[in-house]
Amino acid sequence: MRPAQAPSPAVLDSLFAVFREQGFEGASLSDLSKATGLGRSSLYHYFPDGKEQMAQAVLERARTIIDTEILGIANAAGSLKTRVRKIIATLDQIYGGGRSACLLGRMATSSIGGAARQDLQLAFDHWIEAIEKLAIESGQAPAHAHDFAQDWVARLQGALLLQAASGDVGPYNRAMDALQDLA
């Protein structure tokens, strides 16, 4: 499902924000329309298949962000320490220092369709791949590095959930420290 016409980055950013805060089921067409400043008919112009197609476009955008801002940095030249710091800074910006929800986490528990689910899985796979690469460079055996990467992404997701429930960013900060320890 590709949009009939590509929406502007601002429209995707607005959809991203609504899905991130309200999840797929919680985001009504009225919410999406209000956030984008587009009427329902305009939303359907960009996304003829409706909210499911909007979610897929947002997840494609999330995957692109991970590919450039996380995996791209992990694969770039430079010291391990510098790349880890850049990734932490990027995650701090994305998650507001641990105070903002994760779109991927929200969508993972939603009833999204198959194409959106594939984009979600790819986003997580690429994120884990990036952390695994850093762990291997830090000296971990490949099998351990993969487990570390999966566990670290799960830890971060859990930390964001705890913060949403309690307001405590301590678990988020400790997750960032564990990533920093790779360098």
Rank of each mutant, 00 (worst) to 15 (best):
L120D: 13
D31M: 05
A178R: 12
S8R: 11
A4Y: 02
F148R: 12
L12C: 02
L12R: 09
G39I: 05
G50H: 13
G97N: 13
D49A: 14
S100W: 10
S110T: 01
V58L: 09
L156Y: 03
G50S: 12
D31T: 04
R174I: 09
L12S: 07
I94G: 03
G139Y: 05
E21H: 02
V18E: 01
G170Y: 10
L156K: 07
E60C: 00
G113H: 07
G170C: 04
G78H: 08
Q180S: 14
A115S: 14
A57V: 06
K86G: 04
D125I: 02
E60Q: 09
A145T: 07
Y46F: 15
V58R: 11
M107T: 00
A76R: 10
E25R: 09
L134S: 04
A101E: 05
K133E: 10
S41L: 01
M107G: 06
Q140N: 11
D181H: 08
V169C: 07
A165R: 13
T109Q: 13
S33G: 10
G167F: 02
V169W: 04
Q140G: 08
H45P: 06
Y95T: 01
Q180D: 14
R174W: 01
I136G: 00
R117D: 05
S166T: 15
I65W: 11
Q56P: 02
G37E: 05
C102I: 00
G139L: 06
V58G: 10
A57P: 09
Q53E: 15
P7V: 03
A178M: 13
A62D: 10
H146K: 14
I112Y: 00
E69C: 07
L104K: 09
F19M: 04
G97K: 10
A115D: 12
F47I: 06
A130M: 05
H144S: 15
Y46Q: 03
W127F: 15
A116H: 03
S33H: 09
T82C: 01
L156T: 04
G158K: 05
R63G: 06
G113R: 07
G167A: 03
L162T: 01
Q150R: 13
I70L: 14
W127H: 11
M54L: 07
F124Y: 15
S41E: 07
E69G: 12
Q5G: 04
Q163E: 11
A77G: 13
A115T: 14
G97C: 08
L179M: 14
S33P: 01
W152P: 01
L29M: 14
Y95W: 08
L71F: 06
A108S: 15
G39R: 11
Q121K: 11
F148Y: 15
R40F: 11
L120I: 12
Q150K: 12
R83I: 00
V153E: 04
Q163K: 04
A130G: 09
S110K: 03
A74H: 13
V153M: 04
V84M: 03
R99Y: 04
